[in-house]
Amino acid sequence: MTTFSIGALQVDRSGIPVIRGVDLEAKGGEISVLLGSNGAGKTTFLESLSGIIPVRSGFINLDGVELAKLRPGARAKTGLSHVEQGRTVFPAMTTEENLKVALHPDADLKEAYDLFPELLQRRNVEAGMLSGGEQQMVVIARSIVNRPRVILIDEMSSGLAPVIVSRLMRAVRQLADDGIAVVLVEQFAALALAIGNRAYVLRRGQIVYDGDCAALARDPAHLHRLYLGDAAA
């Protein structure tokens, strides 16, 4: 089973420490939900894991392979996939071309269409012309056909209608059930906790909660305090 471990991770932006000694573990078949208020460092954390920004210290380990010094492309080859926020489709390429460009030799486009059947009838449409929800489906499906062992998903619900968000959440749960380790950063905490296994709360670059999703979901007041820290008192 896949194990994705991060330990003592420190990341700076413009010389300022943004991530300060974060430990996190994601296992295959589970969704690790990462919550936190705006500016807590969630996106910076994911970008450091996929290699978009460098780490200052700490380790990022995927099934025994150390990733911290690798370029983003090399990390992707080891099985780490990053669904960035902002629906990063290749806009002038069709839906099918968006999938084909990421297609792993052992994968099949059918897997993408099985996950999101609604993309089938839109396969020849340029991705830039799709709706926001469809674009997010394309980006997730593109990630799947790349045959990842770990998927980092950043704010996939941003700007989408609740019915679409629910649809995407079900798909993410299905990915985890298929054995992939998912790290989900999400603004809709309740929805994310409902499908997740393990929850982490990040505040000012540090993990302030590491525990069961269901327990946190049952205690919204606690979650509120974790988000706001001393300010909630």
Binding site: S50, P72, G73, A76, P91, A92, M93, V101, N146
Partner: peptide, 22 residues
């Protein structure tokens, strides 16, 4: 396929790198 990868690279270099394109 290389042409497809080049088009992806031209549209979103970082997204292209994140899916393993060299």
């Amino acid at each position: 396929r290389t042409g497809l990868q080049l088009r992806a690279l031209s549209q979103r270099p970082m997204a292209a790198e994140l899916i393993g394109i060299r």
